Amino acid sequence: MPTVLTVDDSRAVRTIVSKQVKDLGFEVVEAEDGVQGLAKLGECQFDLVILDVTMPNMDGPTMLGKMRDAGNLTPVIMLTSESKRSIIAGAMKSGITDYILKPFKPEELRNKILSVLQGGGGVEDVVASDQPGGAPAAGISPSAPAPREGAAKQFCDVMVVDDMENVHKRLRGMLPNHLGMNGFTSAQSALASAREKVYRVVLVDTEIPDVNSAVLAQQIKVLQPHAAFVALALRTNAPEQSKELRDQGFGDVLYKPFTQDHVDDFLVQYFDNQEFLTSEDNLLKVAPFLGKPERLDRYFARLAQLFPGVLNKVASACYEEVVLDLAQVPTQGDRLPKLLVSVAGQAKEVGMTMTVVGPAEIKKVLASFEETSGMKYFASVQEARAAAAA
């Protein structure tokens, strides 16, 4: 019977992971941090390690590096609330088999566990790279060489397949700088890259000369099984346009010509939901604002949309307090106080108190508005934790 090691400092997450592993009929062993995880690996052999990124004493990437340095090639699925390219790319270079972004659905975790344990996934095949099946799209050679065996794949956020280069330039200019994008004007070059890299979102134009875009998308999907697939299409008056594209295998559609609002909505759905507001147990971290000043209202509007769901998640884990890290949040105007008043009210509704953490500017903002002047404030997460433990 396969045995799985779950390494996470959150008891709630370990409980969720252990339940899913046991429901699959496998054995599970728990560890609270990387130090304990390495000790468990020294005691017995495991078939899979499910490893958190952020932990005290020894974090996930450090434990992973020590495993590989010692010659331990046990497959690793990494759990992370950080969807930034640098975090995931670094883990892939160290030889993870797959990763899951928090918060995750139980069925997603089960599917990835089964994929590794039943599919024989190990460090030598970081992401599945089977040749695409079925008939090739027009103009595509199915015999392109696969990457060399044992090569860890590079990570990139977005793949764009469109025969017009101006489409790539236009979209690149609307995406934030921290997101990576590779653009391809031919099906052949897109398939070649899909064999060499790992993408989170793949956008395919629906009108590429001499290419069946739906078939091309299916072929890329075989190489990129974890990516989201979005159609690039001209908006028409046909009421069934969106449904037809979904029937062809696309999960969504981004209409051309692009507008910044439409691209921002795309970012919220596939990226910002995971990066704008991240959670580790009862600690919520708000991402910094990187856009132009005129986009501040939209930044705070996105946060307002995301907070209710994340607060419910924290409350469901039976925490009595939520700690809000605002270290890099803009403080000009009254946007932040209004948001904090709303969040504090939502936290109270689900039975939690709220503590705010941030630099001195945050303290000044809280003191300058009557509605926020009484909120608990600490300069660092460590101080907030110490006060809660006292």
Rank of each mutant, 00 (worst) to 15 (best):
G71T: 09
A152I: 00
P142M: 13
G139E: 09
I100Q: 00
M67D: 04
G90Q: 07
L101I: 14
I140Q: 04
K102T: 00
E108Q: 11
G134Q: 06
G134P: 10
S143P: 00
S129K: 05
K153H: 13
L79N: 01
A91Q: 01
E124D: 14
V127G: 05
F104N: 08
A91F: 01
G60F: 05
N57T: 12
I87A: 15
P103M: 07
A91M: 13
N57E: 15
R68Q: 08
G122C: 10
G120K: 05
Q118K: 13
I88M: 03
G60T: 07
N57S: 14
G90H: 02
A91H: 07
G133R: 07
K66Y: 07
P132Q: 04
A137G: 08
K153Y: 09
F155S: 03
K112T: 06
D69C: 00
S81L: 03
E124W: 08
D125N: 09
K105W: 03
G90Y: 01
D130S: 12
E107F: 07
V116M: 10
A152S: 14
P136E: 08
R85L: 15
T74I: 13
V158A: 10
K153V: 11
V127F: 14
K84S: 15
T97R: 08
P142V: 03
R68F: 07
G65C: 02
V116A: 14
V158N: 05
D59Q: 09
D157Y: 04
P142E: 08
P145H: 14
A89F: 10
P142Q: 08
G134T: 02
R68G: 09
G133K: 12
L79T: 00
D125F: 01
D98W: 06
M58D: 07
D59K: 07
R68A: 04
T74R: 09
Q118F: 00
D125G: 13
G90L: 04
G120V: 02
R85F: 01
S86Q: 15
A128K: 10
E149H: 14
M63H: 01
N57Q: 15
S83L: 03
G139D: 06
G134M: 09
P75D: 13
M159F: 06
S81C: 10
G139K: 12
N72M: 11
N111A: 15
L117R: 04
M92P: 01
P75T: 10
A152Y: 14
A138F: 03
T74G: 12
I100G: 02
C156D: 05
I96C: 03
A152L: 11
G95Q: 02
Q131S: 13
I77N: 05
A89C: 10
I77H: 05
K153T: 09
A135I: 09
M78N: 04
G121V: 08
K105H: 12
K93T: 08
G122N: 11
G71H: 10
S141E: 06
G121A: 12
L114N: 05
M63T: 08
T62W: 03
R85W: 07
G133Q: 07
L79A: 06
P103F: 02
L73M: 14
M164I: 11
D59F: 09
P106Y: 13
I96Q: 06
K102I: 00
M63I: 08
S115Y: 01
V123K: 12
M78H: 02
V76C: 11
I140L: 15
M58R: 14
R148T: 14
T97G: 11
A144Y: 13
P132V: 02
S86R: 15
D98P: 04
